[in-house]
Design a protein around this nucleic acid. Structure first.
Lengths: 111, 111
DNA sequence: GTACTATATGCCTATGCAGTAGTATAGTTC
DNA sequence: GAACTATACTACTGCATAGGCATATAGTAC
């Protein structure tokens, strides 16, 4: 969010990108792809989700540019196209850790 | 997202934090608060949303630790408690800008 | 006390979307 | 060609939640 206010249109786009990451299933897929490209079938195995479900999540991640697709014969191989997602997740995890320790401190104080 | 896979519980928490930012209305509120603390009434004015709606969004942002609240008499003043949201938004905006220029390039190539 | 104001909460409806099942498409093998 | 496989698409169900209205709560002024 830059210094000057974002246009309503821009706010919608940014919110949309956040929404794409607002699902454990999709984060799980991105995490699985961290090691390198995988076909849909591998992701189904890795996540334990249904094939249609995985395919839909991949479609969404694709349209938002988080992953890219390479078709080879019967298989579709997906790769992370935007490594900055990991940066985003790291920031989130950092804040979560902060909050957790803070809560512990509060609880400890009350005890 | 660290090197080692996150637990399912952690994925849920991270997703929850992303979800809190996955709404234009909430991004608008955060943007309005960028200049400093504001009472609910001011945010209602600034955003043009209903009071109840603003209040509910603030509640969510509060529970996720993005804002903090200071009560003074009849008023509740809200402030950004986690400046990293702006960092997150900047990353998003950067990627959006990248994608836009890429799309323009593709369109130009086709023309 | 009453009247008023600022914020929070509960109820409601509509919308969006995750997940599932079934089907369609496209490539491979024989 | 037929049979099979991997992926994508369609239709549906159920749940979460945004937004609006009305009301509750809490503080102020008189």
């Amino acid at each position: 969010m830059g210094r000057e206010p974002l246009s309503p249109e821009m706010l919608g786009l940014v919110a949309g990108r956040f929404r794409a990451l607002a699902e454990p299933a999709r984060l799980q897929i991105l995490q699985a792809l961290r090691g390198g490209e995988l076909a849909v079938g591998h992701l189904v195995e890795a996540t334990g989700m249904g094939q249609a479900n995985v395919s839909k999540h991949l479609q969404l991640l694709l349209t938002h540019g988080y992953v890219s697709r390479r078709k080879e014969g019967l298989f579709s191989y997906y790769t992370i196209a935007d490594r900055s997602v990991f940066e985003l997740c790291d920031i989130m995890c950092g804040k979560l850790a902060e909050q957790t320790t803070q809560r512990r401190r509060v609880l400890a104080r009350r005890a």
